[in-house]
Simulated assay, not measured.
Amino acid sequence: MKVSIDKSVKTGAAVHAKPRRKLITPKSAPYLFIGPAFLLTLIFTVYPIISSFILSFQEVRGVEKTFVGFANYARLFHDPVFYKALLNTAEILIIQVPIMLFIALLVAVGLHSSMVKAKAFFRISYFMPSITALVAASIVFMILLDERFGLVNYALSFMGIKSIPWLTSPMWAKISVILVMTWRWTGYNMVIFLAGLQNIPHELYEAASIDGAGKIRQFFMITIPQLKPVFIFTVVMSTIGTLQLFDEPFILTNGGPNSATMTITLYLYNVGFKYFEFGYASAIAYVLVLITAIISLIQMKLVGDFKE
């Protein structure tokens, strides 16, 4: 009798026992997969952004941090080197970006034409510079553009042109940086324009041909308007990249001669890692972010209105 009672009790307990909750459910599984990436983003992206913003209101001396309010930002308005770096960056932006995008568009149109053979070869050839390491490419150009022993001046000497001080003259140093940037990023933008050209319906060109529109008219009336999103993307991304210009002037000229190629990011690097003024460097970084955002919004508006 005792044994039967114990069995019934155990059986009843088993019937009324609650099922265990599963740790991993269909709803929680996606969060477990994105959890590590989200955590790494918080640690290595979100935290540095917040920390550097707080640091821009502080003065760092060794391990001591002192709150100085907007003193670092006010210092920017009285810093001639910052204005010089800002002007240099603006000059490179205004000259280099339109030239590069114009060449990229022409190359893309040429490679999109049915008259060109071996398209894959030319596409790879133009795109290869964009996957070349910036440091390696800059060192190669530094050797090529050497005033005394560079291959470029050696080739120019056969045409009776005197040696050009590519990296020692303020004007030519800036031109050298523009040349290296154009060489590296033209192929990258060419691929983007080429993708946009391939998405334009061929029926539009057939209809225009029937109406008597020539190739040039088709280019300006069909190709350019259809590439409006591509124009906006390339202009904005090229502008952001130019405002963040660092590797080329750092390796080619180290910001010289006479700060002629000193860019904002190069000046930021010098302030932070040469003079160890991390608070002031953080203020420069956030001013650069603000400038980039404003210019990008203006460009999106202007390009959008122009293409309407």
Rank of each mutant, 00 (worst) to 15 (best):
W183K: 08
L290K: 00
L227E: 05
A120T: 13
L76P: 14
R21E: 11
W166M: 01
I298L: 13
F70N: 10
S8C: 08
S130C: 12
V289A: 14
I232F: 04
A208G: 06
S8F: 11
F220T: 08
I192P: 02
E147A: 11
T263F: 14
I240M: 12
F149G: 06
L144H: 05
V235M: 13
R75T: 14
M181K: 10
K174P: 08
Y31A: 05
I295G: 15
N88G: 13
G255S: 04
L297E: 09
R184H: 02
D211Q: 08
F67D: 12
M221Y: 12
K215C: 08
L167P: 13
I139G: 14
Y154D: 08
F250W: 10
A173T: 09
I139V: 15
K274N: 10
H16S: 11
G255F: 01
I54Q: 01
Y126S: 04
T265G: 01
L76Q: 00
F278K: 04
T253K: 06
M1Q: 03
F57V: 04
L23Y: 04
E248D: 01
G196T: 05
A71G: 12
F70H: 00
S169D: 14
A173Q: 01
G279W: 03
Q198L: 03
D146K: 11
Y126T: 02
Y286S: 03
P48V: 00
L23G: 13
V230L: 09
A90Q: 06
L302R: 05
R61W: 10
K7W: 07
A29H: 01
V289E: 01
R75M: 09
V140W: 06
Y269G: 07
P229D: 14
T265F: 04
E277Q: 15
I298Q: 02
M159F: 15
V46T: 01
S8Q: 09
T265D: 13
I124L: 14
W185T: 04
G241H: 06
I200G: 02
L252Q: 07
K10H: 10
G214E: 06
I54L: 09
G12L: 12
I99R: 03
R123F: 01
K228T: 08
Y267F: 09
A37W: 01
G150H: 04
Q198R: 08
K215V: 13
L93R: 06
R184D: 05
I50N: 00
Q244E: 03
F193Y: 15
S56L: 02
I224D: 07
G187H: 10
G62C: 03
W172F: 15
Y47H: 00
E147H: 12
L23D: 07
E64L: 05
Y154N: 11
N153Q: 13
Y275T: 14
M115N: 09
V235T: 14
A155F: 13
L227M: 08
M128V: 15
Y73C: 06
K228M: 10
I264L: 12
I294P: 07
D6T: 11
T263G: 09
G35S: 15
L101T: 12
V287Q: 04
M1V: 09
M1E: 10
A120P: 07
T66L: 01
A281Y: 02
H202D: 14
T242P: 00
I222G: 04
S169K: 08
L197M: 10
L290A: 15
V191H: 03
